[in-house]
Every structure is written in C-alpha cells, then in structure tokens.
Amino acid sequence: MARSVRHSPRLLRSLLPLSLLAVLFLALPLVGLLQGVRWTSLLSDLAAPQAREALGLSLLSSLLATALALLLGLPLAWSLARERFPGRELVRALVILPMVLPPVVGGLALLGAYGRSGGLIGGWLHQALGVQLTFSLAGVVVAQTFVALPFLVLAVEGGLRGIDPRYEQAAATLGAAPLACFLRVTLRLLLPSLAAGTALAWARALGEFGATITFAGNIEGRTQTAPLAVYLLLESQPAAAYALSFALVLLSLAVIIGLRGRWWSLGR
C-alpha cells in the first residue's frame, strides 16, 4: 500500500487537501461536543446520581458482554478459520448480520427470542428457570453481546487466517506438545488481533443504544446505560448529558490509544 503511493507523488499531493476535508469532517463534531461540556462542573455533573449510575452500569455491562463475547466467539472464530464444514459461509453471514442490522431491529429480534411474553424460549426460561432477561442487567448484557460478538469473531478469524501454519508445524516437528504449541506459537501470533477484536467488541458494547432500550428497557440504575442516559438527560439536565458524552469519548480514546499500532498499522 505505502509503496504504491510512493510511485505516484503527484497524485498524493493532489489528494492531500481532500484528506484534510475528511479530517475536518471527523474532528468538527468532536470539537462541537467539547464545546457543549460545562468544564467548571464536569466532575459534579458526572457525580450526579443518574450519570454516575449509568456510567457504572455501562462499564459493568460492557465488560460482562465482552467476556461473554470472548467465551462464545473464540470457538466460533477458530471453527470458521480452521475447520471445513458445510454451511460455513452461511454461518459467517449470520455472524456479520448483527453488525449491519439496525440495533432497534436487533432488540426486537431479541424480544422475539428471549422475551418473557411471546419470546421463542423466553417464556420457558421464565417458567422453568425463573430467569427474565428483559428489564434486567442480564438483558443489557445479552443485547450488548448480540451487537458486539461479530467484531470479536471477525477480528480473531482474520488473525487466525493470517498465521502461517508452517510456524505451528515447525513447533510441532521440533517436539512441542499441542498445548505448548498453541500457547507459545498460535496464541502469541494471534494476540494483536485478539486484542483488537476484544477492544472493538467492548467499545461497541459500551456504545449500544437501540437494542438495549428495545430489549432491556430503560430503568434508572438497572438497565439505563450511559448512552440511554445521555439521550434522556439531554432535555432535563443537558450539562449531565454532555459530561457523560465526554466520559464516553475519553473511554473510547483510551481504547484507541491502548491499541496504538495493533490493527491499523498492518500496512506499515
């Protein structure tokens, strides 16, 4: 990529102003958001009960969703990358679907499956196990996992495909036991994409809105995550809404900085 660009310096120069336009396009709304933040009361706005609870709930639920996505996603990513089975392309399409589906539709789909009244298995879950996902923290986690899982699976599958199998074969020929081979060769080579996939899944879970409000509702302190609170606080307490937005931007930035060079410097 970088090399082909170096071949056409004239083209590069002519595209620079246009790139600046894209940078401005992305940066301006962020500046606009910062402009809305009331800096003098930022900390007290964040400490207000509704904001603090929403942020805490968002952190807890998104971390749980990420853990669940890892648990469910790693075996699937491995199978998609390494196994041959009929319908593999169909499974991959199914995995990508929540990524492109409007989240509200995802929420309706979740209600159709896990809703206590009218869900495919939701009624049984409630009767047999006493579990109700809607209007609960578990429901928030389910909604977030539903939208976050594809990011993890695709990143890890891509990473696994990128590993040259000869490294693993060499390790095996040199006498490494399968487990040692997996831990010391495969996992180590997979680490960058695993980290990227985990971080993207977490960020997606943290920002989830549509599926959460549709499936898990919007109960303060119980299912009202930070994005939901931002939307509802905007009318009654705009300062708190902006403070929460700022906190979400900071968290997302932390992920990007933490991942510096992990998933976009591949072409360097």
Binding site: G122, T134, Q224
Partner: peptide, 23 residues
C-alpha cells in the same frame, strides 16, 4: 419504586414496552 419504572422516549415508544416487550 424507581427500580420498577422503565422510561420510553415518547408515548408510542413507551407503549411498545407493553405491546412488544415484557412491561
């Protein structure tokens, strides 16, 4: 109790919690 109140963004969205959801 606050912990039993789910808030919809408008009247129609609020009703959806009963018609389509578990409220």
């Amino acid at each position: 109790e606050r912990s039993r109140l789910s808030r919809g963004t408008d009247a129609r969205a609020t009703l959806l919690a009963v018609s389509r959801g578990d409220a």
